[in-house]
């Protein structure tokens, strides 16, 4: 199935692209992100923490829904957006 991954700054800088179209097997957001981290190790460095899990600072939006749990199924045609929240004035 086809999933679109949207990356915001600075994550997109890791691979020089803000949109990736991925052909993946059925699975969850977790398995999708593990797959992406293997395919794009530079992005993986930004996404994963020391234990190999997704760094809690990385926010995930599945289509229009922000996720606090990643064991959520992804479906053909879904868009997953990843970003690191920063604040300021």
């Amino acid at each position: 199935m086809e999933i679109t991954l949207k990356l915001l700054k600075p994550l997109k800088d890791a691979i020089g692209k803000d949109l990736l179209t991925l052909e993946v097997e059925e699975g969850t957001v977790t398995s999708l992100l593990q797959h992406v981290s293997k395919e794009y190790p530079e992005l993986g460095k930004e996404l994963l923490d020391d234990k190999g899990g997704l760094d809690y600072r990385v926010n995930v939006i599945l289509n229009d829904k922000p996720l606090n749990e990643l064991d959520v199924e992804v479906n053909d045609g879904d868009q997953v957006t990843l970003f690191i929240p920063v604040s300021g004035g």
Partner: peptide, 8 residues
């Protein structure tokens, strides 16, 4: 601001 960290 930490409210924006949805996965904390």
């Amino acid at each position: 601001t930490i409210e924006i960290f949805f996965r904390l």
